[in-house]
């Protein structure tokens, strides 16, 4: 079977520096894959290139068998790849519910005329957008529901901002979810909770997930497979145990941590 996501020879250079250097990666449907690597290894660049924020210099990204290279970010989102950002990127002055409703944008079709005339189709759609947005927010239980719907996003706590970002990404109804350091800035309890929730995303919603993570407990907890990057190249791939004990990885990444810890 063709994998859901297939990356082949992906290269992205900034000036002389190759942030991605001939990267190959395949993700099957229903898999949770962690991408690890030291700072500057090209993890976020990988996400940015996959979602169309950058055009790659070489290589191809195939999603469900079709190439997404050259498409605009909004088109890629419509195809079913959605993401969160390393540093939270919400619409700070829109309410929590509105943030999630923006995620539903690509699943609606109401345009100028139907919005002005408020045709029945548009009203139904608006109702549906609202319901789905609520549903995505309710994934985190009461944390983003109820009275929080009408709060502007900037009033949320850091952890809730991360959760709202995930909800907003869910609202685009993706098949593949890209999480960029979802637990950064969370306390150990919240991290644990999120680890569990990443599992549930697959179990309840059938998502395929690619996650960039620094916290090794999370990586260990969620991943079917771990991919380690360094200087834009894949240096190891396999189960958590395999990668964690890979010498190049330890040298490039865990080695530093061990030395520091």
């Amino acid at each position: 079977m063709t994998p859901l996501l297939e990356i082949a020879g992906l290269t992205k250079r900034f000036g002389g520096l190759a942030a991605l250097d001939g990267l190959d990666l395949a993700v099957a449907e229903g898999e949770i894959v962690s991408v690890i690597g030291p700072n500057g290894a090209g993890k976020t660049t990988l996400f940015n290139t996959m979602t169309g924020l950058y055009g790659p210099d070489q290589g191809d990204v195939r999603f469900e068998g079709q190439s997404v290279v050259g498409l605009k970010p909004n088109q890629i989102t419509r195809l079913g790849i959605s993401r969160t950002f390393q540093t939270v990127h919400l619409f700070p002055n829109m309410t929590v519910l509105e943030n999630a409703m923006v995620g539903q944008h690509c699943r609606g079709r109401a345009g100028l005329v139907s919005s002005v005339l408020r045709l029945p189709a548009q009203r139904n759609e608006e109702e549906r957008i609202r319901d789905r947005a609520r549903d995505c927010l309710s994934f985190f239980g009461g944390r983003l529901s109820g009275y929080r719907h009408d709060q502007p996003a900037f009033t949320l706590s850091y952890a809730n901002r991360r959760r709202l970002e995930i909800s907003r990404a869910l609202a685009t109804e993706p098949k593949l979810l890209l999480l960029d350091e979802p637990t950064a800035g969370m306390n150990p309890k919240e991290t644990l909770e999120l680890t569990d929730q990443i599992w549930r995303l697959r179990k309840d919603r059938g998502l395929t997930i690619l996650v960039i993570e620094h916290d090794m407990r999370v990586v260990k907890g969620v991943s079917d497979r771990v991919v380690a990057l360094d200087y834009g190249k894949k240096i190891a791939e396999g189960t958590y145990e395999e990668v964690a004990h890979n010498e190049r990885v330890i040298e490039a990444y865990l080695g530093r941590k061990a030395a520091a810890g």
Binding site: M1, T2, F63, G65, Q75, L79, G80
Partner: peptide, 10 residues
């Protein structure tokens, strides 16, 4: 390539 039934196509 022959694709596993994409939901949306571009």
């Amino acid at each position: 390539e022959v694709a596993p039934k994409p939901t949306a196509t571009v």
